[in-house]
Write a protein that binds this DNA or RNA. Structure first.
Lengths: 353, 353
DNA sequence: CGTATTCTTGTAATCGATTACATCTACCGT
DNA sequence: ACGGTAGATGTAATCGATTACAAGAATACG
């Protein structure tokens, strides 16, 4: 519909319209077209108009590959997610996409699925210059040798994970240890003395920190840390892990009055299993979670939990990466930002005594 | 660590290693390097080895932009999502990423957020040749003029939406109307006669079809379709909409014994609101949902629902797109695939009488 | 042994933009 | 009126691969 009557092209091969076509039509050189687009005020008004109408008439859109090749910038970022079907990341991804798109950047997603093959694959994507920056959402980038080979000229950021010694990486996380301690302190403040913990999967740094915070809070309150009340064995931050932990609860003779789960989904799985067997929540057991996902508030009872500011972290991390990508050769230093968590009191914790 | 002792480069500007570097090091032409990579058996064994070790030593990775420019293929697909923070799409995205990555394609995501500006933006991404194919997950691509301007040479697919007259688009969906009718028939089979419906947001085609199915089933069973039992006003397939519908329930003098919600999240929101006021589910009201999201099974009571095969649809749609992208000039025709839904009976529906 | 065929490799054009540099015009001050 | 400067535009190199074509070497066949 665009290159209608003027040009007598036979459109068997519907060749895309290039800057050449626009230049010819506007009666200028390709350099002028390029300038009209990139720096409109370095080109005379009349010429600019001519170029723009030629663009409109031909329906021209600059070719991304050509532009990237020459300009050495793709205007794309890679967002790496662990990729378990976890809804925890939904708002994060939303925030990231929002900020990046607004700034004219495209978002390439990758699920690493803790598989080395996939990490290698994405390392290659980065080295191929396919993206201008990388945002790793919970993971262990720096551990991987493949990633070590990607040049530090590509800005990288990490979210939700605390990894030591990452000089060239911006980090956005929360103080998992202190936040967890605060959650447990809350239980203590409500009169609970016998408090169990369902940690996340071993190996995970966040899980470890949260367990640490749990122990800290108990010790600070002069309460014993009882291994029988630490129900390890989670495979992930998921329902199934909470479900499994319930077995530990039922096995126990001297039951706790409260449970701190390392994640909302674990808490929900646990609660579900207990309710199934007629255990009342919070009547018989109080439960507190971590994250404040969408489902925490809609569950019955609504889950009391420690909120992570996921959307805000996404926004901050994206903005930071944007800033660093825009700066030539690392003029902008990396950031280490630790955001505060917030206790959200709902219905799953009962005051004792 | 790679270009260590041999080459006396000063690495102030850490220029990326190119095919030229590899060629020089292996003592061959760039053409040979390219061939060794793309068609290994068209190059002599000895040469191939030389090339590969040169690649290994230099840590070479082909530049994506250069490759795309010349080969006119980016090995990327654009996945467009509506982008509400809906967990419905999580497994879909998972499946898509899985299949595409496996095939060597990158996944660019875009949230349209029903905003014209964003749709325009993504239309431009396509026209810029940034992707080889497009997968729209629930949306109205064809309606938009911008999209009309993207050439049909870019394979496009649509998931979960039924849009008439889309010649050049593959469609993967379910029979929303019949599946809904089946859900309602199930309620009827359990002895329910007075059945309400919470439709999805107006305007949405799926929502409309599901409402249609609800009416069909009632009529087929000789039951009246009562407008007082159709609780419109959903803004989305979300909790809040279910919550709002609950008000309608309480307003009603002659209450229904069962409710068919157009989506699980609506059902969950509705159930939550009822339970809050002491209404028993399924003791007092039976509820059936649609989708079978992760949360349906973990709720209390576990939600009886009509499952959409989200992962399977994702896999099929991705494979189809892959096939069409691989074929030069539309040799592979588009598909229209309609997958079956499946009733998942759990705890939220009670047998009457 | 000479020609035809197959293998292997190199040369150079090409993809479609951006941009350094050159050129030309117009306007400025003295 | 003339050298100087600013402004507008064009020329052509360049980004880093792929690939058509050509050429040379090796093998086959009569």
């Amino acid at each position: 519909m665009s290159q209608s009557s003027e040009l007598p092209e036979l459109d068997s091969p519907p060749r895309a319209v290039t800057i050449q076509d626009v230049a010819r039509r506007a009666g200028v050189s390709t350099a002028t077209v390029s300038r009209a687009l990139a720096l409109p005020d370095r080109v005379a008004v009349a010429t600019r108009e001519a170029v723009f109408s030629a663009i409109r008439e031909t329906g021209y859109t600059p070719n991304a590959a050509a532009r990237s090749l020459r300009a050495k910038s793709t205007k794309m970022v890679l967002v790496l997610l662990p990729g378990i079907g976890n809804s925890f990341f939904t708002p994060v991804l939303n925030a990231l996409e929002e900020v990046f798109t607004e700034a004219g950047y495209g978002v390439l997603i990758g699920y690493t699925r803790q598989s080395r093959r996939r990490e290698t694959h994405y390392a290659r994507v980065i080295r191929a210059g396919q993206v201008d920056g990388v945002l790793v959402v919970t993971g262990n980038v720096p551990r991987d040798e493949e990633f070590a080979s990607v040049p530090d000229t590509v800005p990288k950021s990490l979210m939700f994970s605390e990894v030591p010694g990452t000089e060239h990486i911006s980090v956005f996380d929360v103080d998992n240890r202190n936040a967890s301690a605060a959650a447990v302190r809350y239980l203590i403040s409500q009169g609970h003395r016998r408090i169990a913990h369902i940690p996340g999967a071993e190996g995970g740094l966040e899980a470890q920190e949260r367990l640490g915070g749990y122990c800290d809070a108990l010790r600070d309150a002069g309460l014993p840390v009882d291994e029988a009340l630490i129900w390890r064995g989670a495979s992930n931050f998921d329902f199934a892990s909470g479900d499994r932990a319930a077995a530990r609860y039922f096995d126990l003779a001297d039951k706790p009055t409260a449970v701190f789960a390392a994640a909302d989904e674990i808490a929900l799985g646990f609660m579900r299993a207990l309710k199934n067997k007629g255990v009342g929540i919070p009547a018989d057991v109080s439960v507190i979670g971590f994250d404040d996902t969408e489902y925490a508030i809609h569950y019955d009872p609504a889950l009391t939990t420690m909120r992570q500011p996921r959307t805000e972290m996404g926004r901050l991390a994206a903005s930071d990466l944007l800033r660093r990508m825009a700066a030539r050769d690392g003029a902008v230093p990396t950031s280490k930002v630790r955001l505060p968590c917030e206790l959200v009191v709902r219905e799953s914790v009962r005051r004792l005594g």
